[in-house]
Nucleic acid binder design. Structure first.
Ligand code: SF4
Ligand code: SF4
Lengths: 162, 162
DNA sequence: CAATCATGGACATGCCATATCCGGATCGGG
DNA sequence: CCCGATCCGGATATGGCATGTCCATGATTG
């Protein structure tokens, strides 16, 4: 699984949404302007989040997106899988079936040792992402970012939140 | 990082080479026939293993490939990185620089919280792969595969080893 | 010298991430 | 009740990259 830009964008959007006051919505237009990415394309990623139940949307003027759950209950893994799907990094093309020494009617009962190791690594990757929530991210960002930028960003966003 | 077929092929080739008797070589032609993949293309993956020092090669008739190290000292991670390179699954395109509220001369001193989480997950993935050696794989395969197939495969391979 | 082999570059092809556009449905405000 | 803003989904280009093929070169064996 090759993580595309959509994932980076989605994570940034969630970070922004997670410090929006309760009940306010932010439009795709504002989110795209804030991050400097094309609005139409960002919409695709947001649709993924919407279908996964991570964000809630409303239509019409002053519509947009907000988190559908408390920030503490949304993990990085949720966001990544909502945008990327759940394909594993390793895809087996069953080349063992080409072994000229195998009887043609032989049927493998389980995935081979190679695939099992690769999938175990994927599982470790997922567990790491599942251990971090948007609330954790928010807390880290508060410490990382200079207060000045944080203040001006919040102001900028509230100005556009419907 | 999206794992391509080359990785699957390389791992299978290493598995085969790791139960080849000491000092024998197996040509790319034989390896490609055994796995049912195009010879020229498989060669690319094997060249990666060669440049990484995982396999040793000789030219001329009866030439080919053998492991350059004991099977216990070659990990899955070594093979994967030899073929795929060491790019991480998550690539940051620095969209935080587009934030309209940031002063233009502001310079970030460290990667942001989002990237740090993603890279930590990559690290967990790598550690899992680094924990399994080709010797471990060989042992598992001996238990998994029916003895009949194992015997005929070994025979097939020794027949072609130079 | 002839056959076999690894190496590496050039090239064709097909798929997929990226990006754009538009029509439809829904809602808020006048 | 109408208008404009917004989300949603499908259709469609486009560029890059993985896949796959071909060939020239140099090295080795017999
Ligand atoms: S041995 Fe594993 S990786 Fe190879 S074809 Fe079988 S299941 Fe796939
Ligand atoms: S916040 Fe993280 S992921 Fe986003 S642009 Fe900055 S370093 Fe990249």
């Amino acid at each position: 699984m090759n993580l595309k830009n959509q994932v980076e964008w989605a994570l940034h959007c969630c970070a922004v949404l997670s410090n929006l006051p309760e009940g306010r919505y932010l439009s795709a237009r504002s989110l795209s302007e804030f991050h400097g990415v094309p609005k139409e394309y960002l919409g695709k990623a947001l649709q993924g989040l919407s279908k996964a139940g991570i964000v809630h949307t409303t239509l019409g003027p002053s519509g947009g997106y907000r988190l559908a759950l408390p920030a503490g209950e949304i993990t990085f893994l949720n966001v990544v899988e909502a945008v990327e799907g759940r394909k594993s990094t390793f895809q087996c093309s069953e080349i063992r079936a080409n072994n000229p020494c195998r009887p043609g009617d032989f049927c493998d009962d389980k995935p081979c040792a190679i695939a099992r190791v690769m999938w175990k690594a994927d599982e470790a990757w997922r567990q790491t992402l599942a251990a971090v929530s948007l609330a954790d991210l928010q807390q880290t960002l508060q410490q990382d970012l200079p207060a000045e930028i944080l203040r001006r960003s919040t102001e900028w966003l509230l100005d556009r939140a419907g």
